[in-house]
Nucleic acid binder design. Structure first.
Length: 300
DNA sequence: AATCTTTGCAACCGCAAGACA
DNA sequence: ATGTCTTGCGGTTGCAAAGAT
């Protein structure tokens, strides 16, 4: 018995969204909030797949979305983050307030990727077809994807819960490493006097916070044997119950966080709030860029 | 001006993984 | 323990607009 398809495809609108559909979706989410995407179209009266609604909202309709005009600072940041993280678009987007993973991915594919690779690719490739341009470019033209000497490959080991000793918890709170807990869930606040429901964390936070050896060709094999915590997933885990994300850090994230903390430049809200109607704290791009400049030193 | 080609971006798809029953 | 649901991610596709011929 296979899984139920996300929606019945028949009779659903596809392709570009109309202004009317946008308005319906926006109004619905303003009233009822995000989530329950599967049932949303029916409840909102949209002839769309829930997945499509989610995508439309996240990539286009959210009020905190910035569109177009990616600044030089942002561009620089994307390049550096891509160098560091590879195609982890959601992670990259998480560091660029108001930008979506899809937008950054598109921007990379159409501008930066070409520019970064383009220096090495000569005019002979300018004529390559759209097909080659898309994905198969590397294999069909013999152009290898840029090797990322320092791209951190996180492994799919996920943290579902972690246990932080109370003292460490306090230390982290003092260092402002813990998020602002603003949800109503009784289990949300680690600072509750009754710590009974706890703040379970089952890994050694110190271990995670150690700046890791970056992924490189030489230590590929070693790294492949290592257990890393997948950074982008922690947000998923935490966001299910809490709107802010506790930084369960992948090594790359940990490294970023660590250094940012050392430099006292860590943005307080480094992930976009999941509450679309709460404006994000602006991330100081200049600061982050300067941090990433120092990042180059680790890589080399 | 007409046609063809390329580009950019929104949207779609399949998959993975945690949550939940 | 198992199967299904829900959500999120990254890769890919489709199409309109822009540019070239």
């Amino acid at each position: 018995m296979g899984r139920r398809p996300c929606c019945a495809k028949e009779g659903l609108n596809r392709g570009a969204w109309s202004a009317r559909e946008d308005k319906i979706l926006t109004n619905y989410i303003k009233i009822h909030g995000e989530g329950k995407w599967r049932d949303l179209p029916q409840r909102a009266g949209l002839k769309r797949c829930g997945k499509s609604c989610r995508l439309r909202w996240l990539n286009y309709l959210r009020p905190d979305i910035k569109r177009g005009n990616i600044s030089m600072e942002e561009e620089e940041l994307i390049i550096r983050l891509h160098k560091l993280l590879g195609n982890r678009w959601s992670l990259i987007a998480g560091r660029l307030p108001g930008r979506t993973d899809n937008e950054i991915k598109n921007y990379w594919n159409t501008n930066l990727g070409k520019r970064v690779h383009g220096d090495k690719i000569h005019d002979s490739n300018k004529q390559c077809s759209k097909l080659e341009r898309k994905g198969s470019m590397e294999s069909n033209t013999g152009i290898k994807p840029e090797t990322h000497p320092a791209v951190i490959r996180t492994k799919a080991v996920r943290c579902t819960k972690v246990i932080i000793p109370w003292q460490l918890d306090n230390q982290m709170a003092n260092k402002n490493l813990l998020p602002v807990w603003d949800c109503d869930s009784p289990c949300c606040s680690p600072q509750q006097e009754d710590n009974s429901c706890g703040f379970l964390k089952d890994f050694d936070i110190n271990e995670l916070l150690i700046s890791g050896v970056l992924y490189s060709d030489q230590d590929k094999e070693i790294n492949e044997c290592e257990i890393l915590v997948d950074g982008d997933v922690q947000s998923k885990n935490m966001s299910s119950s809490c709107p802010e994300h506790f930084p369960l850090l992948s090594r790359d994230e940990a490294k970023l966080e660590d250094s940012m903390d050392e430099a006292a430049i860590r943005p307080q809200n480094w992930r976009a709030s999941t509450d679309p109607f709460q404006p994000n704290d602006a991330l100081d791009l200049t600061t982050l860029a300067s941090f990433l400049n120092s990042e180059d030193e680790w890589i080399s």
